[in-house]
Amino acid sequence: MLSVRGLSVRFLMPGGRRVAAVTGARFDVAAGECLALIGESGCGKSVLASALLGLLPGNAQTAGSALLGDLDLLAADERTLARTVRGRLIGLVPQSPAAHLTPVRTVRSQLEETVAALTATRGRAALRAAAEAAAERAAFPASHLDRHPHELSGGLAQRAATALALVGGAPLLLADEPTTGLDRDLVDRTVDELRRHVDEPGPGNGTGRALLMITHDLAAAERIADRVAVMYAGRIVELADAAAFFGEPGPRHPYSRGLLQALPDRAFTPVPGMPPELGDLPDGCAFAARCDRATDTCAAPPPAGTVACHHPHVPEDARA
């Protein structure tokens, strides 16, 4: 479905400084699959999402490719992105639904407007029916359709935003921190619903949607992801199967292991130190300065592959 190869984004800052926000990202998301992109704030996750949607600011430059079907999202012009990609090929589930919805209009009118803009549905009655169907798909109660966004709870606002993202029948859903600020029950419900949209037969050939979920919430990722991509300092340092990553044998990159050990239901100990500046990355492994396995080898760029590390944990370590 989505095939990202060597995606890099850099920002040209005043004074000729260059900030490498994303470097050489490579991953695939298949239909009916959820890939969770995890990492701490400022590691480049959101920039990657903006790059896929063509929403980067003017001082950004990109390299590589992001093929969605036959279309390279990075090379597409704004007109193509606006008319065929956003909403139709990629549905965005936003970070803060309350801010994503128009405060002065009801959920129904926003849904109807989106239906009219993205589909061939015309006529009052047809639009009304289509909007109600869209709300139902996202489990948004029909009784709340005539409310304004500020009259909705956080969970319902999130469903309204999801309903909008689903209207265009997009085969790829992009969820950018969909659970920020929600409490645990709501996080579980929200991500379960996202998972349901991945599993149910999709609009086209019945293979289900693809979901790229960007999050710093490891518990949410564990709950629904099939695969996990860990991002550190702009690079994807580990790409792993979710069951192996969160369960046995566990992550292989030292950073991923540290991240999991920081969870309150595990060791609750932070990774020492702080991530490097994206404007001033070392030539070698960016994690070496914080890593207890680092050696002189780490001054060289880490190997490409599923684990970008010179000294990854191997399953033997886990048994020892």
């Binding site: 701490e40 704030s41 540290g258 969870l263 309150p264 609750f268 932070p270």
Partner: peptide, 14 residues
């Protein structure tokens, strides 16, 4: 720590 990643959260709590 609601908006923070696991490692930063653990560091601040510590």
């Amino acid at each position: 720590t609601a908006m923070l990643d696991a490692s930063t959260a653990a560091a601040l709590v510590a």
